[in-house]
Each structure stands twice: as structure tokens, then as C-alpha cells.
Design a protein around this nucleic acid. Structure first.
Ligand SMILES: [Zn+2]
Ligand SMILES: [Zn+2]
Ligand SMILES: [Zn+2]
Ligand SMILES: [Zn+2]
Lengths: 138, 138
DNA sequence: GTAATTCCTCTAGTCACTAGAGCTTCAAGA
DNA sequence: TCTTGAAGCTCTAGTGACTAGAGGAATTAC
């Protein structure tokens, strides 16, 4: 049996975060000791590792809840799980695309200043005038 | 003189967001009509456009406040403005790097499932086992 | 037995908004 | 001038995924 601190050390999930996941229904409420402290077993450790991994990959809490629910029904078709993963991939790709547009503009903004005072500063000028931007990064 | 709705249409910033920016000190509290409604001039429109542009480029509220404060002192050296922009560029690049690592893993996770049921689903298996990942995306 | 550490619950704060309730003011047509 | 409907006002609370802290109880090590 692990205490919540043991579980935290083994999974890298902070103690208050484990309690938060319990509240959110990502992890089942475990047994308690006589003194009302949480006591976990191997199964809970694995589930928490699953949650942690999915969070690290950027899945939202609702997606993770759905994936856990699904994994409890191994005979059902897995199309839903596959589509959650595909959506997550698409969302990551969108974020990358947007950030790359920002990178292009910021590269110019951050490296083109040859002024000495705020009055000549290219950073300030560029932020004041979107027409100087190459791209519609909005 | 513009009403808050006029300002919103001209800048693309939603009305409640304009009021929020005023509360946060990004935009000065404007004059009021006899009936206590906000009335803006050309100057406030420009400042709001500046704020909007900086937000679109990902700058945080504190950075924007500092940049506005600086731009009110055109004779000061602009090193601080330049470094705020450089930090923002670095932060965007870090985010891109992290998302690209996620993209690599998610690509595999989302496309390698050839199972039919949840029991065989590669998505579920991959999320349960970080050892299948190529990279340390944590 | 005692002291240090860990645990408990609960509330509130983070960031940058967004939504809604309940009320007042403004602008345009009849 | 009157009326109606849009737009404005303030204030509170909710979002996502935690994080911090208060104030107290349980556990563990010596
Ligand atoms: Zn400069
Ligand atoms: Zn721009
Ligand atoms: Zn599958
Ligand atoms: Zn992994």
C-alpha cells in the first residue's frame, strides 16, 4: 500500500494534483487508513501513470476521462479512442502553425532594433503598427 | 468620440475585454458621458490597438504594461523593450519545440492503431506505456 | 514519548478573459 | 415628444488545470 506521497514520488504527480484528479474523477477515490489517509495499490498507480502520460501529451481532462471509461470496456470498438487521439494531433498541429507565425514576426521584431532610445525602438514601432508584419498572425 | 462599442468594432477587441483591460491598467480610464458611459478619442484607440497587437503576438499583460510605460518615455534607452521582445521570442520557440516533440509521439499514437476493439487499441496501449515513446516529452 | 514529517479538508489565487443578472442610457423612428 | 430596442453600466462567477496556504490530525523515526 502506498501513501499519497509514495504515489507522488513514483509517478511525478504532485500530491495536491493527485487529490485534484480524484475530485475530477480521473482517479478513483482509494481506500483510507484508520486515520483517514489515502492508501493506494498497484492498480491506482497504473491509472495515475496513464493520466499523467496523457496530460503530458496534452490531452484535456474530459478526453482522459473518456479514454479511461473506454479502456474499461475492452470489447467495444476503438474508433472513439482513435478519434480523440487524432483530434489531439490536429490541435497540436494547429498550435504549432500559429506559434510559427508568431515566431516569424517576433524574430523580426526582436532583432531589427538598431535604435538607442525608446523613441527609435523598432520593438515599440512594430507593436504599434501591424502593417509592418509580414503575416496575419491574429 | 467613440463609444465602447465603436472602439470594439474598430479594434476587434470585445467590449468586456476592453473593460477588463481598463481594470488591468493596460488602457487608461476614459472620459464619461453625462450618463456615465465611456467615451474614447483617437489616442485611446491607438493604445488599444497596441495592446491588441501585443496580445496577438503572445505578450503577457505585465509585459504589455511595461512596454506602454516605456513608450511614454521616448528618451530612455530601449534595452528593456528589446529584452522583453527577445524573451517572448525565446518563449515562443520553447513552446514550439515542446509541441513538436508531442507531435512526433501523437503522430505515432494516432496512426498506428490497427486494432478493432479497445482491447487491442494502440492508442490505449501507447498512453499506458511511456516506454513506447521515442522521446522524453515530459 | 516526542518531534518531524506527512497527511487531511477547505478556501482562494493563477491567467486572460467570458457569461450572465439586473439595471440605466442612448439613438432613431413615429 | 414619446417609445422602443440596442447598447451601455457594475458586479459576480465561471473557465482549465492546477497551486498555495491555513489550521489541524495522523504517521513515522528515533
Ligand atoms: Zn529597441
Ligand atoms: Zn502584426
Ligand atoms: Zn484504436
Ligand atoms: Zn510518452
Amino acid at each position: 500500500m502506498f501513501s499519497i506521497g509514495d504515489l507522488s514520488r513514483r509517478t511525478g504527480v504532485k500530491v495536491p494534483t493527485i487529490r485534484y484528479y480524484e475530485q475530477m474523477g480521473l482517479v478513483a477515490a482509494p481506500e483510507r487508513s484508520d486515520g483517514n489517509q489515502r492508501r493506494y495499490g498497484r492498480q491506482e498507480l497504473e491509472r495515475l501513470a496513464f493520466v499523467r502520460h496523457a496530460r503530458d501529451l496534452g490531452f484535456g481532462v474530459d478526453d482522459i476521462r473518456a479514454l479511461i471509461e473506454l479502456s474499461g470496456h475492452p470489447d467495444q470498438p476503438c474508433g472513439h479512442a482513435d478519434s480523440i487521439a487524432a483530434e489531439q494531433l490536429a490541435s497540436v498541429r494547429e498550435k504549432i502553425a500559429r506559434l510559427k507565425r508568431l515566431e516569424t514576426e517576433l524574430e523580426r521584431i526582436a532583432t531589427c532594433c538598431d535604435g538607442k532610445t525608446v523613441g527609435d525602438c523598432y520593438v515599440i514601432r512594430a507593436l504599434s503598427d501591424h502593417a509592418l508584419c509580414a503575416d496575419d498572425h491574429a
